[in-house]
Nucleic acid binder design. Structure first.
Lengths: 212, 212
DNA sequence: TGTACATCAGTGAACGCGCGTTCACTGATGTAC
DNA sequence: TGTACATCAGTGAACGCGCGTTCACTGATGTAC
């Protein structure tokens, strides 16, 4: 999962238990789901006693909140990677952002649900709020590049933000839930074909698309 | 919540414990969330001993599955009500369907999440699969009315189904999660204005919209 | 209508389990002199 | 460099709690005659 460690490993006792706990929490989340997630399970996976996490996180909520914040950072990285490989054209950039959104959800369904749908994170946490806002702002910037209008002052542009966000988020959530399996033709396409269709769907949500 | 009872109440022992348990389960779900849902809590709410539910549901999964199936029936009713009050024009009908989708999610967020995002239901259950398919088919029919083409045989029409479903589902899920609070102008509108904007957003997803 | 019996919905005590939390402890690391 | 002490990350036993599950039971309802 995450690879930031072994730097300080064996430096002090465990080395970097905080990072190890976050890694273990992600595995626990993926294998057990948010519903069956337990601090004791995380400690066991990290190979420490069940009382050890208390030195780094006050409780499960604190650990999950930190994990969600890291999730947003990786979420943004996934989108940037997609955009880097795409044409610099604003619409291609927006579609790439959306494909990155879906990529991340499919690759990390449990983490995605934790970030967007769970009550088990502390939304007033500063790191989480900052990371979450950064993700939102990336979308706002892409829409601004297309509409040439600042969504924070122009309701029409903000409506585009909302519409694109909704369609991308809806695709991601339905795909995670396995609901697209019902749509057999989509499942039978190869990667390129499927992405072309998803890009087309994503771009429908911005009105500038239609008026061009 | 549900009002089907007192019919047979006091008829045999409790009367209709099965229905009472489903009512109690919905309250438990709303107050505790899927994550903290417990059979004992449901029994307590229904005013029976914690072992009583076993006579009607094998376990929490069985109870939640039955509740999800009922949820889909009410989900469809909510959409039909919206459509009944709308113009018979196919696009107005589609927008009404979408508004009903959002209505239901906002009025029953926990139940909505149980239906669409939870691992705690048994998806191979016949009643649940039937109810869920009926909801999907309603959307398929509305798209067919607009495109004049059967989505089950025409991939272009099915893509419209997917796109409309995604945008409506995304709106619903983001609104439940409180993510639209960031979009302040939307929050300051009255009911009619907000619904006009949501309808506009929903109709963007169908390509027939743009080509007309 | 009356009695005797069968059925079965709901009871309540008991169980084992995993959970979060507490707390006295151990022992490795860091620091003062 | 060496010793003595402080710090603090991690240990492991113990706790109380709510959970699902089991099971012998009670007693109301239904049925046979």
């Amino acid at each position: 999962m995450r690879k930031t460690k072994t730097q300080t490993r064996t430096a002090y006792h465990h080395g970097d238990l905080r990072a190890a706990l976050l890694d273990a929490a992600e595995i626990e989340l993926t294998k057990k789901g948010v519903e069956a997630f337990s601090l004791r399970g995380v400690a066991k996976r990290a190979g420490v006693s069940h009382a050890a996490p208390a030195h780094h996180f006050s409780d499960a909520r604190g650990l999950l909140t930190a994990l969600a914040a890291i999730g947003y950072e990786r979420f943004i990285e996934t989108q940037k990677r997609r955009q880097h490989d795409a044409s610099p054209d604003p619409k291609a950039q927006l579609a790439a952002l959306g494909l990155g959104y879906v990529d991340f959800a499919m690759a990390n369904p449990a983490l995605f649900r934790l970030m967007f749908s769970s009550e088990k994170t502390n939304k007033t946490n500063e790191a989480l709020a900052t990371a979450s806002s950064a993700a939102f702002d990336k979308l706002v910037v892409e829409i601004q590049n297309i509409t040439k209008s600042d969504p924070y002052t122009d309701p029409i542009a903000m409506t585009d933000v909302m519409a694109v966000w909704a369609i991308v988020h809806g695709l991601a959530d339905l795909m995670i839930a396995g609901r697209t399996r019902r749509i057999t033709f989509l499942e039978n396409l190869n990667k390129e074909e499927r992405e072309a269709i998803l890009s087309d769907i994503i771009l429908r949500a911005s009105t500038v698309q239609a008026s061009e």
